[in-house]
Design a protein around this nucleic acid. Structure first.
Lengths: 138, 138
DNA sequence: TTAATCTCTACCGGGTTACTCGGGAATCGA
DNA sequence: TCGATTCCCGAGTAACCCGGTAGAGATTAA
């Protein structure tokens, strides 16, 4: 059980869009540079985020990716689900009866964990960042 | 990010000891049969649980493993930490500065998640089981 | 002593992760 | 219309980890 690099990249990328460009498309190239992510890898991550409906893209010069909802409406859980499937099934095992003690235990826990991720939005991340910058410059 | 089979096995095994044998050593063979776990694999899992101080063992005939603390004193988090390292560092990435937004985000989240696991004890699992058995037989 | 049980170490195959790469499709500016 | 730019799609791959098997040794009960 470990957070995948893909998910971390995805969160960083979504945050980057929310933080730097409000509205205007942000290019993968720039995100890759700022967030230190291999560009070609980032591109396929964005494909998954797009398929999940979290971002949309415009091609050609001055193209890029942009959020389909406002940052306070995109939760960390959404990004994770897009990149690694439903968190609720994180601990699920197929082939075990549903009335089993352990099955229900892991199901309950997975829900609680999912709730943790759903508590945080992209806007929260931006505010966090602003606060930290403020502290850093005092 | 996925719960490892090893951890699931470990939790089942610890539960099995707590539920079936209070005090007397429980043999790996029996646990493996009851919980449907490959015996030889279970044995090495127990080595880790032993190193973590959660169980102790007696060798030879009528030997087996036994809990070193009472079930209400063993949390799910303890078992997980024994088998897959500190939950608090679940999302940690080495080589990133500690004042980074994302680093602190994942740290905070990991703590919350860890708290979820630390809320549940082996005794809770036993009670869950009893309740479910009761329902099943009504 | 003998049999049972845990203990230590090594090994291994299959699957996943984290990429790279080539080339195609849309879009904008001129 | 042309060409540069950017996203889009699919294939390939090296390294790693997970789940499990196995041999042989140490310890203990009867």
């Amino acid at each position: 059980m470990k957070l995948t690099t893909k998910t971390r990249y995805g969160v960083r990328a979504m945050f980057d869009i929310a933080y730097h460009n409000r509205g205007a498309p942000t290019q993968a190239k720039d995100i890759a540079r700022r967030q230190n992510i291999p560009q070609r890898y980032l591109e396929q991550i964005f494909q998954e985020l797009k398929r999940a409906g979290l971002v949309d893209a415009r091609r050609g010069p001055r193209g890029g990716y942009y959020l389909t909802r406002s940052p306070e409406d995109i939760r960390l859980g959404d990004v994770m689900r897009a990149l690694q499937g439903p968190i609720e099934r994180l601990f699920a095992v197929d082939g075990e009866p549903d009335d089993d003690v352990h099955t229900s235990l892991w199901r309950d826990l997975a829900r609680k964990v999912a709730a943790c991720f759903d508590e945080v939005t992209l806007r929260d991340l931006c505010e966090r960042r602003d606060k930290q910058r403020a502290m850093y410059f005092i």
